[in-house]
Amino acid sequence: MAKLVATLASTHHPFYLKATTAASEDQIPQAAEWKRKIEAYRETLTRAEPDILVMIGSDHFHQIFLDNYPQFLIGKAPAYDATFYNEEREFGLPRYRLSGDEDLPRFLHQSLLDQNFDFAFSNELKIDHSIVCPIITLRPQNDLPIVPIYTNIFAPPLPAPRRFFDLGRAIRRAIEAYPSDKKIAAIGTGHLSLELGGPRQFMETGPDPAFDRQAIEWLRTGDADAILGSVTHASLDRSGNATHGFLNFILMLGVAGPEEADYADHLDLFHTMEAYFTWYPEGFAQ
């Protein structure tokens, strides 16, 4: 059976590339520290030596719109183009072509249906920055096939927080039941407290630094019970109108299991808290 060799959950900041490759006189003061932290985090994936990446993100109204919005969707395509015109314009992100894998998503899709997650699917999916950003930070050589999974953190009503956690558990079971000797890493991105298009956007900190500190501690210690006992759609709203991206962290904790993280780091940036976590399965030689 396939092995899940690492589970990674992080924020995806679309300005990382621009911030760290700008001419040095134009760089923000934290750019060098940010780059150091990202490169250290990248090493946690590299050392797991994965063959395939299952990547959990969320389309930001790039391919998916309100005429037809799935709660959960899996990509089943031989390759994925990535980065939309408006992401090039706004974030300076390059275009990519990511290789896909058609066998693993077929297996995962059936397994998830069998576990009562009625996924939508796409045979022609263009990937947005929720998956491009972790390629840039964690696997910039872009040499591995991916299986993209999109969640709805964006167009209410959203699935319940517990559903995200349970989906993570189901993805873990599906990966470990895959009849293959492949080594698989699961990478998911989202946000801590975040405000976009509202009165608390682009402040010196994220909109709710107390939530950010609490969320980092919950994830570091793997305290799923505390998260699921505290986090509701309404509480996320109070922490910032785009804080629902935290639901993807809950999903990734489901993939990892409610365990202490093997790697945890964070960075207080000018308008968000960035956070980076990695879990290895039991017995993984680090």
Partner: peptide
């Protein structure tokens, strides 16, 4: 909120940043 922000960033970010520095439009919006 995402559409309402990104479309007007697409229109106003550059002219505001050129005159008043980075994120000037985003701060005005807030």
């Amino acid at each position: 909120f995402f559409l309402n922000l990104t479309i007007f960033i697409g229109i106003y970010d550059e002219p505001y940043a050129a005159k008043q520095g980075p994120l000037a439009f985003q701060r005005l919006f807030a």
